[in-house]
Amino acid sequence: MTAAPDHSADERPPLSEQLGVRLRLVGTALVAGVVVATVSVVAATVLSDPTASVETAFALGSLLFGFGLLGWSGAVALGRGIESMQETLDTQTGWTEPDARRAMARIIGFGLGVMLGTMFVGSVVLGLA
């Protein structure tokens, strides 16, 4: 039976709690991104040209950020379509829209973190302003 996904509104936790969960999700990924970017840019600077490594790191961050944004919008826009296609074609992989949004939020956070981290290292430490 291709049943409609139930939107049971009353079971949702209060808004502030929802927001908190989301912020923690993106925040953790963001911090991870900042750390990874800082460490790798500093390491890359020792080995090669600082401007080039900052540019590459920032571009990689924006790659993840953009990918995450597209994936998030895709999950929201196509969520039900993908779910019902998998059901009908017998290729269920447990894909659900909230799950996909969560994953994309992590990627968005991480990418943004890499961009911010690179910006920080680039402007403060290396003084490329």
Binding site: A59, G66, L69
Partner: peptide, 12 residues
């Protein structure tokens, strides 16, 4: 978000 996403991808 689609617009910002595509722009970020093209930029990278």
């Amino acid at each position: 978000p689609v617009l910002v996403g595509v722009a970020s991808l093209v930029f990278s």
